[in-house]
Design a protein around this nucleic acid. Structure first.
Lengths: 208, 208
DNA sequence: GGTTCAACCCCATAAACAGGGGGGGTGTCA
DNA sequence: TGACACCCCCCCTGTTTATGGGGTTGAACC
């Protein structure tokens, strides 16, 4: 039996969802509230749901902030965001705060049910356009910047990022300390920076 | 009509897939090869498929390396990885290199077909366990690290990350150079590091 | 009232760094 | 052939850093 909770302020959507889900075999949907505050007040280790459908736009505390608190107290409850928001900001905030799924409100009831089942089987339900945004995050993350640095220079940058001293970089690459310095001078010139710190920063931000 | 290509070295899987997909209404599956090399040789702007199913473990060039090349020449072709590998490494390498979907080889033919359709509608097909791994990436990324640093110390870390010298950090925080050094000593001790570079690195990697 | 602790300051020294000179050598490309 | 880009090494300068020591204050805890 999958225990499902709902936090949703729209009365119509909320009762529709509850009635539908509670009728499904293997489902029980009774923890249904219209705000994070009231949900948390009612929550106990005994009533803790397996899956929680969470709206984002709520009166009082937002669903994202609410989720953080709920996850702290009940980390075993998996949370699916169920919202109209499809902007990258809301999506990534949710995922970084611990959401395990993200469905848009136009998702048919049946697919929501399937999403919940998918979740309990170790999957992560996402609306198609959400999935695409998540995937796109990776390919744009490491964009193929045409680095002006030569191979040796890039290797030295890696050493800097690893927190090595010039001497240790030289040892690692089997070149002399002086050569390391020579390369670093060139790196600074090419990147228009004047310190190790800036190089590390640029490198980790993917600007190299 | 969706033009589908396949790069897969297992003869049985390859012909099974081709026969199934080519029979589906709205699908055409003719560009079928057993290696990246032979696929790329045959590829022309005219024959360019809409969707490419790509194996990873291939004789010769790997599917991931192959994808990078294909994406360079034909960025409009969406690529779905179709593979047995479900380790985080392969998944993220693929996504970072431009894959738009990732299905495991145990996916039923029908779901592969649905995945291709989903892709053309702007979605991103992923096997459930892949989706979960991708989602988990975010929640573990910015894990709530209980930073051992005090507020002042964190502020100094910010200064270091910004590439400021001790002196400038002192100016910014209205404390003396000596106090900055005092704090930095403590930061190093707490983080078990011995240089600015390591602090910046840790900070930017979210380990503080 | 004593203890603890973070935050503030000072001193001293060795090492590392930033930036400026020099030398070499290889290769490519016009 | 000369102009470039890359790679390797050395010297010199002054500055910044890392790391050890020594303190005072004031709020907070028991």
């Amino acid at each position: 039996m999958i225990l499902v909770g709902i936090v949703e302020d729209d009365n119509q959507i909320r009762s529709l969802l509850q009635q539908y889900l509670d009728r499904q075999p293997g489902f029980s949907c009774t923890l249904v509230y219209n705000s994070v505050e009231s949900f948390r007040k009612a929550l106990t280790p005994e009533t803790q749901p397996d899956v929680l459908l969470m709206d984002i736009g709520l009166p009082g505390m937002s669903g994202i902030d609410g989720m953080k608190l709920i996850k702290q107290d009940y980390p075993d409850t998996d949370i699916i965001m169920l919202t109209v928001y499809n902007d990258a900001d809301k999506i990534f905030q949710s995922l970084c705060s611990g959401a395990t799924g993200y469905l848009l409100k136009n998702t048919p009831l049946e697919e929501i049910k399937e999403g919940i089942e998918l979740l309990t089987r170790g999957g992560s339900p996402m609306s198609p356009q959400i999935a695409r945004k998540v995937i796109d995050f990776f390919s744009t993350e490491k964009k193929a910047v045409t680095s002006p640095l030569s191979e040796k220079e890039k290797e030295i940058v890696v050493g800097l990022v690893d927190g090595l001293s010039y001497k240790l970089i030289g040892d690692r690459m089997n070149i002399s300390l002086e050569t390391v310095r020579f390369h670093i001078k060139n790196i600074y010139r090419k990147l228009h920076v004047h310190s190790k710190a800036e190089v590390i920063s640029k490198s980790l931000k993917g600007e190299i």
